[in-house]
Nucleic acid binder design. Structure first.
Length: 487
RNA sequence: GGUCGGGUGGCCGAGUGGCUAGGCAGAGGUCUGCAAAACCUUUUACAGCGGUUCGAAUCCGCUUCCGACCUCCA
């Protein structure tokens, strides 16, 4: 097993050597979506990033248990007992039961991630399926003295917590600044401290999603589900906790506090945060109204797009940036990524057609392979990996053109390398191949055109080529025959 | 206002104290019936100003611009 993997830990703000608590097992928890609306591309980026991480850890031989939750309980719009439950609000708008909303957007989420070729997590627990675990955890936190109940609502006592623990460990903020920047408590507020947050919230009469608890009928606060479910499936302490960077300051900070108060240990050894997808330099988000929906991108129906892009081209686009960098979304950038993706896929398609020769012309596949691992070992640096793979693309194309030769071991090694990294680690597949029937049909068309060419009937051969081009099929002649691909 | 992260060539986007990132686009060439594809060659960089250093785009300081978080969002 590779032991040179280094990853950036938000907890320490440094790259650290990856040493799992119980090798070869790795526990990874990633905060999933709140399924009250369509996922947008920014959400997708996070899940594609963690898919890359999951795939690489698995590729290295780790036995990864990847837990990603579905948030389907009725959290409030704000972190206090005001505002509407998002599901109830949406249910009213769409005239559906809250659980119909949950079902609809859960299915949509799965469909989109399937199109992006992400592997399903090992466990995908839902918040509503773990109400009792959450209640148990709240009870334990109260027992430990870090929470208090007021009129059926339970609050986490941050002021007590900060006496023993570092509340701002994840984001390195100063407690005084947090206090100064938080709303004043108003007269009706039940909370003792300004930074206190709800673990369990008393349901108002109109609140639909509600469960009985020791404190009366209510629903869980918006951080407790992740603490409860991660410890249930991965233990009180596990290896990696991930999510979008936007979750670090509040959600993850409170998760750590809850787990520490309950179990007296850091829940995760490594905290990993993925950066935001931006549009014109500004974060893509639901509330800002600049969110692209996946189907708008695939079909090109979004007003800012000139055309549609395939899910795999978009995945490639995302992987060409490092997960901790922002990635800016534009027509030009997508266009470039799409072409690069096709170039990579075309080379992949040539790989089986290559023939080994007796001698190798100075191609050192082992060195290339080492560079690929070095790239991924350095905090999952997929852009550098892709740059290395384009070296392989050049080798493959040159070999196909007969401009260099590969001996049998090199060719086998090259094929394995490309298979492992392009398909296995990057999760890229060719979305442009047709069905078997279609392939056979193209063989017929191409042979007709080649007959015309041989008889110097270029009018006919060009008509075929232009006709195919007009329906998006590009022909590529070479000495060994004619290849085609969809544009 | 506080905390943090950035400003890299036409675009996207890596990286680094001295050695070509890569993709796309542009230019020239090879191949080709023509084209495409492919291959070869090639132009455009590191926000600004100081400092450390034999050497900085890379480290330090200042300036400036941008963004994220601090309020629901991956």
């Amino acid at each position: 097993m590779d032991n040179r993997l280094v990853l950036y830990n938000t907890l320490t703000r440094k790259k650290e050597k990856f040493e799992p608590l119980n090798p070869p097992f790795v526990g990874m928890y990633v905060c999933g979506p709140t399924v009250y609306s369509d996922v947008h591309l920014g959400n997708c980026r996070t899940f594609v990033s963690f898919d890359l991480i999951f795939r690489y850890l698995t590729h290295l031989g780790y036995k990864v248990r990847y837990v990603r939750n579905i948030t389907d309980a009725g959290h409030l719009e704000g972190d206090n007992d005001e505002g509407d439950d998002k599901f109830a609000k949406k249910a009213k708008l769409e005239r559906l039961e809250p659980m119909e909303i949950v079902q609809k957007y859960t299915l949509g989420f799965h469909e989109v991630l399937r199109l992006f070729n992400t592997l399903p997590p090992s466990i995908e627990p839902t918040a509503t399926g773990h109400i009792s675990e959450q209640i148990e955890m709240v009870k334990k936190i109260i027992e430990q003295g870090y929470a208090y109940e007021v009129n059926g609502t339970v609050y986490f006592d941050v002021e007590k917590y900060v006496k023993e623990y570092d509340y701002t460990i994840l984001t390195n903020r100063k407690l005084d600044d947090l206090l100064n920047n938080t709303r004043e408590l108003n007269g009706q507020d039940e909370k003792r401290g300004r930074l206190d947050f709800a673990l369990w919230i008393k349901a108002k009469p109109e609140h639909i999603m509600r469960w009985p608890s020791p404190w009366g009928v209510g629903f869980p606060g918006w951080h407790i589900e992740c603490s409860a479910m991660s410890s249930k499936y991965l233990g009180d302490q596990f290896d990696i906790h991930g999510g979008g960077m936007d979750l670090a300051a509040t959600h993850h900070t409170n998760e750590i506090a809850q787990s520490q108060a309950c179990n007296h240990m850091q829940p995760a050894k490594y905290w990993m945060h993925t950066n935001m997808l931006t549009v014109n330099g500004t974060r893509m988000s639901k509330s800002a109204g600049n969110g692209f929906l996946p189907h708008e991108l695939f079909s090109g129906s979004h007003p800012l797009l000139e055309r549609g892009y395939s899910p795999m081209a978009v995945r490639f686009f995302m992987l060409q940036a490092h997960y901790r960098s922002t990635l800016d979304f534009s027509n030009e950038a997508l266009e470039a990524a799409d072409k690069g993706y096709r170039r990579l896929m075309n080379a992949m398609a040539l790989l089986p057609k290559l023939n080994a020769t007796a001698k190798n012309t100075e191609i050192k596949v082992d060195e290339l392979k080492a560079r690929c691992y070095a790239a991924m070992d350095d905090d999952f640096n997929s852009p550098v990996l892709i740059a290395e793979l384009f070296d392989a693309v050049r080798i493959i194309n040159s070999a196909y053109d007969g401009k260099l030769t590969l001996d049998e071991p090199s060719l086998v090694s090259l094929r394995t390398l490309m298979q492992d990294f392009v398909h296995g680690v990057l999760g890229l597949v060719d979305d442009n191949t047709g069905s078997d029937d279609f392939e056979k049909l193209m063989d017929v068309v191409i042979s007709l055109r080649n007959e015309a060419k041989h008889s110097k009937d270029y009018t006919t051969s060009d008509r075929i080529r232009e006709g195919l081009s007009s329906i998006g099929i590009q022909l590529k002649d070479s000495k060994d025959g004619t290849l085609w691909n969809k544009i």
